[in-house]
Nucleic acid binder design. Structure first.
Lengths: 348, 348
DNA sequence: TCCCTCATAGAAAGCGCTTGCTAAAGGGTA
DNA sequence: TACCCTTTAGCAAGCGCTTTCTATGAGGGA
């Protein structure tokens, strides 16, 4: 039916072993022989049987990239950078690596499922992006799975995710705490004393770290956070919209709203505007991530730029063994404060 | 080293064949035996060897989703919908299917490479999204590859992409022509007679179809398009920004700018605003796709909503054989005109 | 001239799973 | 009791590749 190695071998009048070696390029083959084999491959339009190859070699060309939400450019940008470092020539069998992204939808169960599936496929490497869920049993389950993977020779890299102890995984963490702190310090520097905070889902590490940074800035400035100044939500626009209305209801005297990320900030802007408040004259707004669209907001969003593409590219290279892992297997990637039109001095 | 089927069989005191059957659930096994086997699987923490399984069964649990740009929510939204229909239980070997997305970056070569890689992996199905490139040799190469895939039993579905003749692929096409026409008709209905158009990359079918719709509307209204009213660019914000400045230079009397998509429209808005023009009082702007952020533009964008998630979900179900393919293997999905603040009557 | 080395190619033994076929048991019927 | 189904399980032959080990031939040094 389909063309096999043996067919190619027969046509090129060599043994299957030789064809395999030509394809893999990991063994000396005379130039004339190689040419004959390649011609046969071409003429027969031969396509390697991946599963067979992976079975025999006990490893595959697959590399998995896990993301929380593929529809969110935050992950898209990272995934794109990772994939472009990982894909391309360099796989076994004269081929390319198959870099694929898997969408967990933020669900711990699906995350674990994908990990198992990739393990089953004998993936060469796995890159996990996005904050982890702070659920002890799940954390443990993931950690165990990661350990299994690294033990089996799969390289595991965490990108924008806290380190996983004792798993052999390399971690590139974002300094969410520092970024959150810088943002709030900037607002305090402008004179704000009454700041609302719209957090992400309570169980995510990213949420907690950004909030901790915010609170550290408040504490450092001697500002006591009033109850009700923090609302938890999701990382999307709608959540920002609703949370802002709630914040306004709880305390109309707030002069600034800090959002968990840019989408949330955009929702906040919409809610403020509908409530008849001007940005930044009446209320300042700040986001996080600096996704492409945040510069198009009117006014443009003050936010923290995370080097998503750079971090992703680095993670990809590490996963491929093309870059030394950071010392200790852990590196922290810092963000950069981007001050734009959405933040200004408080009213009065 | 790693646990194999045979180990499980030994532990459960049955033959490997029985274990395989329990796992695949495609052959009668006594309840007591099944239970014993499952217990052994659990105790040994057995993970099926995917490649071995795929080799023996001549098919895998892999399903590929090709996208042009994973960082663009247009594709992210579709991919997410496709993946959530495809992933989940239903694979062979008591497992889940591995739905993965591959980022071609819009490059025809990478598209072909991914197709080959998926073919090599003996993927169960492939879904291609996004407009095709109108390059004859490449079209032919892709068509041939798709034919090979369908002949080998891989289901191929095109989502938001023109049909590929004689390839056995099912196509769910977006009515870009109709959407483009509706949009321009709306603007003409408001009184506009001088409309600029910012197109996408010239070689993409999507670009051509949207532009054709625009021109059909002009023609129907008896408006003769002046040279210089159309600028080609890319599907991103920056391109929209630059193209708009160019349009303004060429003809400052334009009263409306129609953009190839929402990102481009946002760039156009920025350029207009920087040029001191108000939207929509001085110039109306329209986008395409209705991505989530387009409602946050100020003013909110008039655009054509494409049912990305619905189409993606349907494509996913068809790829899984859970929904009948449309008659003739081709279906057209229409968009819906969303009139919002960015369009209004012309100045004067 | 002989032997040894180096370069290249082949033989064959798996890799871990699936599945067609066969076998064994249990139960109903004549 | 003999016979034949039906149900359940095992045997064993691959699936198409990789890779170790072995074989062969051509040079080159002694």
């Amino acid at each position: 039916m389909t063309v096999t190695l043996a067919d190619v071998a027969a046509r090129a009048q060599v043994s299957p072993a030789t064809v395999s070696r030509v394809l893999n390029g990991n063994y000396p083959v005379a130039a004339s022989t190689r040419e004959r084999v390649l011609r046969a491959v071409d003429e027969l339009d031969y396509v390697l049987n991946g599963p067979a190859s992976a079975l025999a070699a006990a490893t595959s060309d697959l590399v998995g990239i896990l993301v929380n939400d593929i529809a969110d450019p935050f992950f898209g940008i990272m995934a794109s950078a990772i994939q472009s470092e990982i894909g391309g020539p360099g796989g076994r069998a004269g081929g390319e690596r198959l870099a694929v992204v898997c969408n967990t939808g933020g669900s711990p169960e699906r995350e674990l499922t994908y990990l198992t599936l990739l393990q089953r496929q004998r993936a060469a490497a796995v890159v996990l992006t996005g904050g982890a869920v702070e659920d002890a049993p799940h954390q443990a389950a993931v950690a165990q799975k990661l350990r299994k993977l690294t033990e089996a020779g799969t390289r595991v890299v965490l990108c924008g995710r806290p380190p996983a102890e004792d798993t052999g995984a390399i971690a590139l963490t974002f300094d969410n705490r520092g970024g959150g702190r810088a943002l709030t310090e900037h607002l305090i520097g402008l004179g704000h004393r009454r700041l609302g905070y719209i957090a992400g889902p309570e169980e995510r590490t990213t949420t907690r770290h950004r909030l901790e940074g915010h609170r550290a800035a408040l504490a450092a400035a001697g500002i006591e956070e009033e109850p009700g100044w923090t609302v938890y939500g999701r990382y999307d626009r709608r959540s920002g919209y609703e949370a802002t209305l709630e914040l306004l209801r709880r305390d109309p005297s707030l002069t600034a709203v800090v959002a968990a990320n840019d989408s949330v900030a955009l929702g906040a802007c919409a809610a403020l505007r509908e409530s008849g408040l001007r940005i930044p004259e009446d209320v300042s707004v700040a986001g996080f991530d600096d996704l492409p669209f945040s510069i198009d907001a009117v006014p443009a969003l003050t936010t923290v730029r995370l080097p998503l593409a750079e971090a992703g590219a680095r993670a990809g290279r590490i996963a491929m063994g093309r870059e030394e892992p950071p010392p200790g297997g852990i590196a922290t990637v810092r963000g950069e404060l981007m001050v734009r039109g959405s933040s200004g001095g408080p009213r009065d």
